[in-house]
């Protein structure tokens, strides 16, 4: 492959949408109401749609007759580069929405940058994704307010989720080697540039939702380098089950 950095850069984006989609996929039929099941399924469908576009492109870069599923399914854990935030479990609905919200605000900023990429394929995927992610952010932001400013119990649960998930937010803005190379080439987005905008926007919505913005200054990272939380192996065990059990078959 002549552009390893571009390939890894794409994985760094698409593994987030893949793994978050997997997490949302676990919920279908188990949510608090049919309406939220439908909405979260919609979000999962958008995320998998984006994932497919990215991986189809990544597969082309690999060449050798590889296809999207080879990229999606056939890597070892250390070669998945999603952030730790998206692999966190569906502990309760507050965690589901908190994870979504903390990711969506970042995701939209990323895609807004990526639509100006000099790589026209990535720019086109970003352009399409912006419409979807704008909706995701509105949905999860509205739920922050509902749960934060709903009942005493819901505020406590939402606060708990935000407190727990907060330590995974800093990783969103760390740059990998592939990121730096792609920024240099005008293809990648320098996510470190919008860190401040991110925390400002998140804080505004949390304030409105009467949730206290955590003051925790200790953060955890590693996903972007392929060092994941212990949850990741189980996610991959599900994801890869069929492909690993029955290799080289068409489905």
């Amino acid at each position: 492959m002549n552009n390893n950095n571009l390939y890894n850069y794409i994985l760094g984006i698409a593994d987030n949408t893949l793994i978050l989609g997997q997490r949302l996929g676990e919920l279908c039929g188990h949510g608090p109401a049919l309406e939220t099941d439908i909405a979260l399924t919609n979000i999962a469908l958008d995320l998998f749609g984006q994932t497919r576009n990215y991986f189809q492109y990544a597969a082309l870069l690999v060449g050798d007759g590889k296809a999207e599923d080879d990229v999606a399914y056939m890597r070892t854990e250390r070669n998945y580069f999603n952030v730790l935030l998206v692999e966190q479990p569906n502990t309760h609905f507050g965690y589901v929405m908190g994870r979504q919200f903390l990711f969506d605000v970042y995701h939209l900023l990323l895609l807004e940058g990526l639509q100006n990429s000099s790589d026209i394929t990535l720019a086109a995927i970003a352009d399409k994704g912006i419409k979807e992610v704008t909706y995701h952010k509105r949905f999860s932001g509205d739920w922050m307010k509902r749960l934060g400013d709903g009942t005493a119990e819901s505020r406590q649960k939402m606060q708990e989720a935000i407190d727990d998930l907060w330590r995974y937010t800093d990783e969103l803005f760390q740059l990998t080697k592939a990121d730096k190379a792609m920024i240099y080439e005008g293809i990648g987005v320098d996510v470190s540039n919008f860190k401040e905008a991110y925390y400002q926007e998140v804080s505004e919505i949390l304030n409105e939702a009467t949730i206290t913005v955590p003051e925790n200054k200790y953060f955890t990272s590693g996903g972007k380098k392929g060092i994941h939380t212990e949850h990741m192996g189980y996610i991959l065990a599900d994801l890869q089950y069929m492909q690993r059990t029955y290799p080289n078959m068409k489905w």
Partner: peptide, 13 residues
Amino acid sequence: EEGNWVRDAAMAY
């Protein structure tokens, strides 16, 4: 049952 608090919150909000 696990969704109870969520539906209550949505109503209260």
